[in-house]
Amino acid sequence: MSFFSAAKQSLGNSLIKLGTSMAQNSQGPVDDSSLSQLENLLPPLQILTARAAMAAMNMSNDTSMSGMNMTNSTTPMSGMNMTNSTTSMSGMNMSNSTTSMSGMNMTNTTTTAKASSCKLSMYWNWYTIDACFITKHWHITSKHMFVGSIFGIIFMMMALELVRRGQREFDRWCVRRFSPASNSCCHSGAPVHSGPSMALRIFLHFLRSCFYLVQYIVAYIAMLLAMYYNGYVILFLFCGTFFGYFLFGADTISTKASSSVQTKTIVQVADEKHEHDSSQYSDTTPTTE
């Protein structure tokens, strides 16, 4: 999926480059500020830039029909290949026949004008310098930057575990606060009858979904990072998860370890008093294997 987003972005970029190069052919240099402004608005502006390119092409005298066709064709690849093939009909046909695979290529080839380009691979690699993650702007140019990114990844995964923990704590607080006298509030999906009002329950669930959203986003970003097949990144995603779970995950024993009955017992035992009789406790721990 990250690939497709990258392809989409490179499409927008190359369309812009196409347009500006054409404009440069006809009108002279274009200042970079307008280019960077355009780059911010990439995906929605594809059609617009295509039109700009078309207009530029009309002005330039050396490109004719082929260029026009290319901007009219809605396949994303065509625009990209145009920068490679110097606007000929054959190049156009090729671009339609290529699959979306060639997206990455294009980012490589079209950015060769710059000092350095993103190194991308769909196979396991250990790139450090010139690796790019998620956006082109996250371009590793030095070792320090790479180390910083690695630390960022570790802390992101630790923060993910912290947010998961936060959700668990929120749920516990919810149970404690709104289901008095019984811990069996919501098992088997039964709603809380004597619990909070409907509006409050909706609000609480909204808060829970906010927690869920954050987890979802961070987990997705982690997945996108892993999809660069970079050995270091995957390794340190692993490390971040390890440290995060080590620090924040000790409270999950009771849930995974036991059936719901057992969990309830543990909660009750712990809530009532601490030094509970161990024999009574061990009676209530069935071996569910």
Partner: peptide, 24 residues
């Protein structure tokens, strides 16, 4: 939380290792 089962540092290290291995 007060209901957390008693777990030693080594046990928690092993748990974290298993959890992150699962993730990996």
């Amino acid at each position: 939380p007060s209901s957390t089962v008693h777990v030693t540092v080594w046990q928690q290290l092993i748990r974290a290792a298993m959890y992150s291995s699962f993730y990996l």
